[in-house]
Structures are given as C-alpha cells and as structure tokens.
Design a protein around this nucleic acid. Structure first.
Ligand SMILES: [Mn+2]
Ligand SMILES: [Mn+2]
Ligand SMILES: [Zn+2]
Ligand SMILES: [Zn+2]
Lengths: 150, 150
DNA sequence: TTTTCATTTGAATATGAATTTCAATTTCAT
DNA sequence: ATGAAATTGAAATTCATATTCAAATGAAAA
C-alpha cells in the first residue's frame, strides 16, 4: 500500500524528526539495494557512490528505518547485524550457505501456519520469528575447491 | 547412546588435549544446569559454588564443548551468545518471551519435515537450523504491570 | 530574509562481549 | 621424578555497536 520511503517520512513526521540530506540519501541507497546490508557495507556503498555520510549517521539511520518498519534486522550467523528492506507482505526465511555466505529467501505458508499452531498450544503470542537454515548451497556443493559463489 | 561427558572426554582424547580440573568442573556444572548459559552466567554459577576458573577458561571450555558436540550455541536475540546442552535426540526450537526473557522449548516434527522439503526444492543441503519465535508468554500476557516471570 | 533554537551530524571516544597474549602453572608420557 | 607440551588466567586486544559533544544544519518564528 504505502511505499517504504513514505513510511519512513511518515515516521519522521510523527516523531518530530527532521528530513535531512543524509537520511534521504541513506534511505535511498538502502531501499534500492535489495540485499542484506551491515552498517559498514552500506557505508561503503554510499562512499562508492560519492555520497558522504558518517558511519554514525548510517548506523542511526538504519535504526530509524528499522523503527519505522521499513527495515528488518537479519542475523546471518556471523556476528554482524544486517538489515533488509521490509515490504508489506514479504516475510521470508533464509537458507544460508556456510561456504559462500550467499542466502536464498524462502517462504512456506505451511511452516508459518504450523508455527501459529505451536504458539497457540502454549498460550504464546508471537510477534515475530526467525527461521534460518544453514547448510551448503547448490553451487557450492557442486564445485570441489569451493570458494565464493554468489 | 553416549553420555555427554564421555563425548567430551573422547574429544579431548582424540585431539591430544588434556583433562584438567577446570575442564571437568566447568563441563560438570554446565551439564547439570539445564539452561541456556552465557560465558558470564556460567562463570558466576561456578563462583557461587566455590569453583575457581577464569573467564577465559570458561569461554574456551564452552567452545570446546561446542566443538565436541556436547553444547549448542543459542542466540536469544539479545546480544550475548549462550550455550545449552545438546543431547543426541533433542533438537528443539524456542518461543522467546520479549518481556521476561524466559523461553519455552518446542518441537514440531511437521515443521522439521517441511524444512527438509523446502531445502530439497532448492538443492540446498541443510546441516543445522534455528527457529526462534519472539513474543509474549502466557504469564506475561496475564499480568498487567509486567516484570520478570520465569 | 534574518533570527532563533532544536535537531542532526560525524569524528572521536566509550562500551562490552569475544578473543588473544604470554608468563606462570599444570598435565602426562617417559 | 623429569621435562616437553598443554593449559590457565589476568590483562590486553579486537571489533561491532553505541554514545559524546562541538559544529553544522533544519525549520519555525520574527
Ligand atoms: Mn532476506
Ligand atoms: Mn533450548
Ligand atoms: Zn517464517
Ligand atoms: Zn527445529
């Protein structure tokens, strides 16, 4: 319904925050790159495009995007927090390759339903979940001297 | 089949490591406490029992227990790594309460099967997975001024 | 536009868990 | 018991995350 950038601007409005060049730039690059990005990765992406913004600002803007419901935190098992664009209806889980770090986004309504049922059985009110399956992706299991795939 | 402590000792043997008082004590307390424990929590548990062991040793021993297949890493969403005892056949997932930090251990063979299927569809070879559902536990959703449950 | 004042920025600093260092201690095969 | 090798643990380091604070910027008022 509402585009991510509008959601972000609404959040800024609702919370008496200000629209700054950095926030627009950072949100822009984040939103168009459809990947899982860490603070540092996004910071580098911005630099490569000649956009200046401090790490601290990138960090804070990602938190803002998260709070405004535009970005989801993802944790690939290594120890850095990444973010991905969250659009209305695209919850998904991940198959993460432990060899090349690539990931496949998957969704199974059956698994989702089973989860609801599981929670109900325990009187537990779910608000979010995270399902990550770690293993070896197709490309990596084919090549012997396995290096980066993607 | 094989008791956790035996597994641990076998790992020590197989890798030319040594059986030390600290390793025995740390493994002992870890194995009998059936909880998710961080390095610091286990360190404190040991102190409370008058067992002396440095944090570094607790840290290293938990890594050893993990490598020897006796301990699993768990991540409750806060930023500290915890470990839990891994016994042969007790893989499980978690319902984590975001109010009181308690957790319920759950298992659904149907969900597990669906995961296998999902992986197969993508030619992905799973080796492990992590399913955590965050939300509010029964106790917490009952009490209004909600504080710690457990 | 100019003034005013709160918000934001970002380099530097702090924090804290995870990890490593290294001298002293302990283990264990001989 | 001896000695080489492994282990310990206090302290230091690393590294991502988070905060500080003076300068810069945004936006509302004058
Ligand atoms: Mn994703
Ligand atoms: Mn558990
Ligand atoms: Zn899901
Ligand atoms: Zn499972």
């Amino acid at each position: 319904m509402k585009t991510p950038i509008k959601k972000f601007r609404k959040y800024i409005d609702d919370n008496n925050l200000q629209v700054t060049r950095q926030r627009i730039d950072i949100a822009g690059v984040f939103l168009e790159s459809r990947r899982h990005l860490s603070v540092d990765e996004l910071y580098e992406l911005l630099r490569n495009r000649g956009i200046s913004a401090g790490r601290a600002t990138v960090f804070r803007t990602l938190k803002l995007l998260n709070k405004s419901g535009v970005a989801d935190e993802v944790d690939q098992g290594d120890k850095v927090t990444r973010y991905e664009v969250k659009t209305e209806d695209t919850h998904h889980d991940h198959l993460v390759c432990t060899v090349c770090d690539s990931y496949i986004e998957v969704y199974s309504s059956q698994i989702e339903e089973m989860q609801e049922k599981l929670c109900a059985e325990h009187g537990f009110k779910p608000s979010s979940h995270r399902l990550d399956i770690f293993g070896i992706c197709l490309k990596c299991s084919k090549k012997k001297g396995n290096k980066k795939c993607i």
